[in-house]
């Protein structure tokens, strides 16, 4: 898989890459500190503090942390259940850290899956995510409709024996657009989502509604359109009998005619990609 080479990255993309790298650094730093007894709230606070110390003032959404079978969203019925709870981490438990910081006006949205101690099931889930990363990029380059790609990802998950857990997200999205955000001195958040980012998303949704596209990549009819140029935070999420795993990173879609340049992952030097490279 080739991405745009560094020299061709515009300053803007470099800004997004920087915050995405920062967020993954945070995830790795926090994951390294997790030990039995830490609660989800504790892990979320660690992420928040780590990023605040490094200059993050606004959020697309506040950091989430899920432990144990909550990584597969077992028994989730209402969106409030996504928020961190007092669930305690134990040895052998899988965990997911998910955060979306805004830094210097650039947004990242990342997901980091790990496990406290060895777990063959979790290893397998992570390894099987690689096929999804390839599938999504290939089909976006083919300019297939987002809804069709969603269906293909879904079918691949079923073939692998997994349940599609991104279906549990609001609107069942596998991805959503992210954009630049104006830096304000006061940046409140609503239900964990930054108001500036929500405003951007709402504006996109309105414009998209008029023009026949949507900033939310869902299984529904409103996503039945070819990929829209922009930055998409893509988050396929696998679930298997109480264990969940996901990655989330930014996919850049452009209007270039060259298929290589029409879509590419913003950064290929991420923990999960490095892991696959080591395994193969």
């Amino acid at each position: 898989m080739t991405s745009a080479v560094a020299s061709e990255l515009t300053a803007e993309l470099r800004g997004f890459a920087e915050v995405q790298r920062l967020a993954y650094d945070c995830a790795e730093a926090v994951a390294a500190q997790l030990k039995p007894g830490v609660t989800e709230r504790g892990a979320a606070r660690m992420q928040r503090e780590w990023l605040r110390e490094r200059g993050v003032r606004d959020w697309f959404h506040l950091p989430f942390a899920w432990f144990g079978d909550r990584t597969a969203f077992v028994g989730f019925r209402i969106p409030l259940q996504f928020f961190p709870t007092n669930r305690v981490l134990e040895a052998g438990m899988p965990f997911i850290l998910d955060m979306a910081p805004v830094y210097k006006g650039y947004t990242a949205d990342i997901g980091y899956s790990g496990c406290l101690g060895p777990s063959p099931v979790h290893d397998r889930l992570l390894a099987d995510l690689e096929a999804h990363r390839e599938l999504i990029l290939r089909e976006v380059r083919e300019r297939r409709s987002l809804r069709e790609i969603y269906g293909d990802v879904d079918r691949l998950m079923v073939r692998q024996g997994y349940a599609n857990r991104h279906r549990a997200y609001p609107f069942g999205v596998i991805a959503h657009k992210v954009d630049r955000v104006k830096e304000r001195r006061w940046s409140p958040h609503l239900f964990g989502f930054g108001t500036q980012s929500l405003k951007g998303l709402a504006g996109d949704a309105l414009r998209g509604h008029r023009e026949g596209w949507s900033p939310l990549w869902s299984p529904y009819k409103f996503s039945d359109h070819p990929p829209r140029p922009g930055l998409w935070a893509v988050e396929p999420h696998l679930g298997f009998r109480g264990t969940g795993a996901k990655f989330e990173e930014i996919l850049v879609v452009t209007d270039s005619k060259d298929p290589e340049q029409s879509a590419f992952w913003l950064d290929d030097d991420l923990p999960h990609v490095r892991r696959w490279a080591e395994d193969s």
Partner: peptide
């Protein structure tokens, strides 16, 4: 084969 493989994991 995939079912068998995953079964061994769990």
């Amino acid at each position: 084969a995939r079912t068998a493989e995953m079964s061994r994991l769990i």
